[in-house]
Simulated scan of single mutants.
Amino acid sequence: MTTGTDPLAPLAVLPGVPEVVAEVRKAADRLYGHRVMRRRAAEVTSESALRGARASAALDGADWPLEEVRRRSDFGADEQARVVGGALRVSAEVGQLLSIWRHSPLQVLARLHLLAVGEGTPADQAGRPRRDGEVAEALFPLELKAVEGPAVDGEPFTGQLPPAPSAAEAAARLDQLAQLLVARADRTPGSGAPALVVASVVHGELLALRPFASHNGVVARAAQRIVMIAEGLDPKAICPAEVGLAELGTAAYQEALLGYTSGTAEGMAAWITHCGRAAGLGVRESTAVCEAMQRGMV
């Protein structure tokens, strides 16, 4: 196992990051210790997948009530239904992709995109990164509006998300990200940047790159969940950070992403802490599920 310097380690000591990492770890450990997890863990995992998928679809503009998502079986009737259906397919398969992720993250990302697009995207675009001349779809309903971002050199700024990089640049940076993740699989357990930091970087980088022509949001959020599983923070996939992201709101999500794309220490810290708060809210959601199960309500 390698013990070399982790390039992500400096991010773990940015202001506010150690605190949010510790808070999420403590909350997750408490959830894993819940008595319901001893005998009904699979049910909690299933419910977490459903709620995470509903929230991820909501962030992509298909904000359906949970019970509607639970009830429906036809997800091809219209565009919103296809968005929800794609998020459900992605969420259901995340746990099955873990072994492939450890040695081939790009293969997993392609699979996630294929699941997300379903029948709503031309077949020659499904499961592959965009090519020269292909434009990535907008990430958020608010993407064309300026929002206030994190401070740069102590001064607040208002800006928009930068355009997606060219297909060639996105492919090169995606390959670098994959190499970093494969190298982490060989590290000594517990060394390097904590799981939350790695998951946040993967999430942010995929949103910034927008490597596919469409459905980049749901793919990025699923990749964050896979990292949290692979890195041991959430091995049973019961902490749906997507729920927290939806609860914090799309505008806050975009504002935090502006921090990531700025590349500044302040911006990166803002992004990681936002992802941490979302993960904490996901833990709270599953804790409520466990409490309901314990009371016989579920």
Rank of each mutant, 00 (worst) to 15 (best):
G4M: 03
D6H: 09
L8E: 05
L11D: 11
G16Q: 15
P18L: 09
V24T: 08
K26A: 13
G33N: 11
M37P: 02
R40D: 10
A42F: 15
E43T: 14
S46L: 07
L50V: 04
R51W: 12
G52W: 01
S56I: 03
A58I: 15
D60N: 12
A62H: 14
D63I: 11
E68T: 14
G76Y: 00
G76M: 00
D78C: 03
E79I: 03
Q80E: 11
V84S: 13
V90C: 11
G95Q: 07
P105G: 04
L106A: 08
V108R: 09
L114S: 15
L115G: 12
A116Q: 07
A116M: 08
R131I: 01
D132L: 11
E134T: 03
A136L: 04
E137G: 04
L139K: 04
F140Y: 15
F140N: 00
E148S: 10
P150E: 02
V152Y: 00
E155W: 05
E155I: 13
F157E: 13
L161K: 00
L161G: 00
P162E: 09
A164N: 03
A164T: 01
A167L: 05
A168V: 05
Q176N: 07
A178S: 12
L181D: 07
D186I: 01
A193L: 04
A195T: 06
A195W: 00
A195V: 02
H203N: 15
A220Y: 10
A220W: 12
A220K: 02
A222N: 02
A223W: 05
L233H: 03
L233W: 00
P235R: 13
A237Y: 06
A237E: 06
C239D: 01
E242I: 03
A246C: 11
E247I: 06
G249P: 08
A251Q: 10
Q254K: 13
A256K: 03
L257M: 06
Y260G: 04
G263R: 02
A265N: 13
M268A: 06
I272M: 09
T273N: 13
C275N: 13
A279C: 10
V283D: 06
R284M: 09
E285G: 03
C290F: 00
M293S: 02
G296R: 06
M297A: 15
